[in-house]
């Protein structure tokens, strides 16, 4: 066995580590976009559980538009546009009396995924132009390092977005309005803000980012449209927001951690460690659960949690 793993223990371990770094960057991007989007929405005091539908819809739209126009960036925009429309539907429905936002989210998840599969049937076959990638590993002679640091343009955009969301939420008047609405609707109302409108816009913005996250799936990694594309990543990303405690930078870290853990199973197998692969493949879920349990507290609410939020108590 040892003889067949080739380079022996040290380089195998290094290979696994490199694989995880590369995997973290590859896998984390859709999580990052969706969780940033949900972060904005939840900061305004509303939960959109339907971003799984938005993600899949975005993936389909991006692939279709990229295929038809040969411009992947137009595809990204189309994906964002789909997200805005679904977000607006969510915001509009939730603004009506007695309509529950969690239920609307579940409905939109079903609707978005169903519509994407419906419209996407003819797109399973064709191949669409891809998004470009940026080589951050030019300094290294090692092919492994270079390929691990072959970073997608959307990931870079995701880093910029993280900083931007953080800045907007913390330092700008818009951010203040969103946070006020999320912390106390009464106070916001007293200050003369239109709560429904703020939440509508926050949900639309969140939808835009989630749609863009979907375009990454179909236009870069794995880079193809089919019905197994998401496997619940949108839903997981919404969960990661609670894990990240409504902080954009922590959303980034959580996404990277989740991506790295997801890459563990394949990376280990690629150097010959294949036993118990189901359990390795479950690593990101176990790890996330363990961290949540360890960081939760019996008696107080999570830090950074918008008080108006229904689901994230």
């Amino acid at each position: 066995m040892g003889a067949q793993t080739g380079g022996g223990g040290v380089s195998a371990a290094a290979g696994v580590a490199l694989g995880m770094v590369g995997g973290a960057i590859r896998i984390s991007t859709p999580f990052l976009f969706v969780s940033l989007g949900e972060c904005i929405t939840e900061k305004s005091g509303r939960v959109n559980l339907g971003l799984e539908g938005t993600l899949v819809m975005g993936a389909m739209a991006a692939y279709g538009v990229s295929y038809l126009t040969s411009s992947p960036w137009l595809g990204v925009l189309a994906a964002g546009g789909c997200g805005v429309v679904l977000g607006a539907l969510h915001g509009w429905l939730c603004a009506r009396p007695r309509v529950n936002d969690v239920a609307v989210g579940i409905a939109l998840m079903l609707f978005g995924v169903g519509l994407a599969f419906f419209l996407g049937k003819p797109l399973i076959g064709p191949t669409a132009p891809h998004l470009p990638s940026v080589s951050l590993g030019w300094w290294s002679a090692s092919g492994q390092v270079r390929s691990a640091l072959q970073v997608n343009a959307l990931f870079v955009l995701g880093l910029v977005t993280t900083a931007a969301v953080r800045f907007v939420l913390r330092k700008t008047r818009w951010g203040l309005v969103i946070r006020t609405v999320g912390e106390s609707a009464d106070a916001a109302r007293a200050m003369g803000y239109d709560i429904a409108r703020v939440r509508l816009l926050a949900t639309m913005a969140g939808g835009f980012l989630a749609g863009v996250g979907g375009s990454f799936l179909s236009l870069f990694y794995p880079g193809s449209w089919n019905e197994g594309l998401s496997s619940g990543q949108g839903l997981m990303a919404v969960a990661l927001v609670i894990f990240a405690r409504w902080d954009p930078v922590r959303c980034l870290l959580a996404s990277l951690l989740f991506g790295g853990a997801s890459a563990l199973g394949p990376a280990l197998q690629s150097v010959g460690v294949t036993s118990g692969y189901y359990l390795f493949n479950a690593a990101p879920y176990v790890l996330t659960l363990a961290i949540i349990v360890l960081t939760s507290s019996r008696d107080r609410a999570l830090l950074g949690q918008p008080a108006e939020l229904r689901m994230a108590r």
Binding site: P97, A103, I106, A107, L110, G114, A116, F118
Partner: peptide, 24 residues
Amino acid sequence: LPDATVNVLQGIIFLSILFSDSLY
């Protein structure tokens, strides 16, 4: 029609019922 047609219908029904909550 694609298999996902039923999901679309379910989604529309669910959304419509949720909307109707506001009519009471």
